[in-house]
Simulated scan of single mutants.
Amino acid sequence: MIYLLLKYIHIIGAAVLLGTGAGIAFFMLMAHFSRSAPVIAGVARIVVIADFVFTASAVVVQPVTGVALAWLAGYSLAEGWIALSIALYLLAGAFWLPVVWMQMRIRDIAQAAVAANQPLPPIYHRFFWWWFAFGFPAFGAVMTIIWLMIAKPQIF
């Protein structure tokens, strides 16, 4: 019973990571294409909160439940697909942490533009496109991890 409960929590955590990532990317992209500093400021404010509430929670839950599941199922963490999942998880984190910081900067820059009744400055666009680029490896890593969890391929 504990195994199924942990598996359920682990799957929900994976869905939250993937879903929140996709949702945040969609809303930030749509806000950016609006070219409206007030819209961007509002969306970025909510996105930062969502990342801290949902993504950060899942980031903590995933390794805890994953290690417990591997142990209960008799897998070694050195098992190929598990080791690759762990490496990809660390890679996703290495891209996600700067993304969160960039989202906070985007929010602050947009809020300052709104307060000053000014257009978005060039620094906003640099942060946005770096944020956009960093999302691809993080999102791709999470998608690959989900495939590894399902397929459990023999890797090495």
Rank of each mutant, 00 (worst) to 15 (best):
R35A: 08
S36N: 15
A37L: 11
A37G: 07
V39D: 15
A41W: 07
G42C: 05
V43R: 11
R45D: 14
V47N: 15
V48P: 02
V48K: 00
V48R: 05
A50Q: 15
D51A: 09
D51C: 11
V53R: 11
V53F: 04
A56M: 04
A56G: 03
S57D: 04
A58W: 03
V59A: 08
V60L: 13
V61A: 07
V61Y: 09
Q62K: 06
Q62T: 01
P63H: 05
T65N: 09
G66S: 02
G66E: 04
V67I: 14
A68V: 10
A68Y: 07
L69M: 10
L72S: 04
A73G: 12
A73S: 15
E79W: 06
G80Q: 01
G80L: 01
W81K: 03
A83N: 02
L84S: 10
L84M: 12
L84C: 06
I86P: 08
I86L: 07
A87L: 13
L88T: 00
L90E: 08
A92D: 04
A92V: 06
G93I: 11
A94I: 15
A94V: 10
F95P: 06
P98R: 05
V100P: 04
V100L: 15
M102E: 00
M102G: 00
R105A: 05
R107D: 00
D108Q: 10
D108T: 08
I109H: 01
A110V: 06
A115S: 08
N117K: 14
Q118A: 15
Q118I: 12
L120P: 08
L120M: 10
P122M: 13
W130G: 13
W130I: 05
